[in-house]
Design a protein around this nucleic acid. Sequence first.
DNA 1: GAATCTGAGTCTTAATTTTGAACTTAGATA
DNA 2: TATCTAAGTTCAAAATTAAGACTCAGATTC
Lengths: 135, 135
Amino acid sequence: MALAAEILGDRWTLLILREAFYGVCRYDDMREDLKAPRSTLTDRLNMLVARGILEKQPYQEAGDRVRRAYVLTEAGRGLALTFLALAQWGEAHVTGGAAPVGAADRETGAPLRVALVDANGAPVDLGRAALRLRG
Amino acid sequence: MALAAEILGDRWTLLILREAFYGVCRYDDMREDLKAPRSTLTDRLNMLVARGILEKQPYQEAGDRVRRAYVLTEAGRGLALTFLALAQWGEAHVTGGAAPVGAADRETGAPLRVALVDANGAPVDLGRAALRLRG
DNA sequence: GAATCTGAGTCTTAATTTTGAACTTAGATA
DNA sequence: TATCTAAGTTCAAAATTAAGACTCAGATTC
């Protein structure tokens, strides 16, 4: 987890990834949303690309020049659970109200949430869980 | 989530919370484990106390003077899901191997993991989930 | 075809934060 | 009384971040 902390332990990095999950993928759009300094944004985007969490894809809209988009890689998308858990926590313990983002079933639209489950997929209350060091 | 990012978006804060989840609760033990500078550690601990994530409890071991322990509050313990999700991600996408920490059922010892579930508690594949903005 | 616009940066300087090391303090112990 | 220790403060030096001006290359406009 130390490495995960090294990657995510930065204000801008977390916010950039949130943007990526929202589907914002262009440098200037992120800069506009986050009000991040250019040099820091460039730096963090490069770091995330180097770590394999984002990738830089050229793309072209009809009748426009080629641009670069930053999109989540497979590994990046894997952070979705962490993000949803964090949003759920914020909702419960920080903002007190509903988080502005949550997950829903793509087909039925039913709301989804993050939970602890056992090996069979049956949900387990957090209170029953113990942290366990593993070899 | 912006506020959550503000709280967690810092290398030391994430590592301090990891210590807290491991049960390390004394200033000098954390300093030793993390090799964090004293002033920074003091600063982050105070911030976490001010945010209601840790609380400072005086405690006394037999035949010893009173000391201060930093323990997770209810809100702090609520971050467990986020941490487990992050550890799970690190295991799958960063370290490649088993994470050094995971959750287990306190009674049966069965390994537990973080997953996405629907309103009835039935697990749902991440691929089925769509991020959803809420009013 | 010269001038302009735009997205995506780089560069520079100033402000802020972090670090490391030394110093402080209060209670317990020798 | 002198010493030890956990838990801090304080301070100067080093590193990082911020703000804003500048660059550059491909479209577009005049």
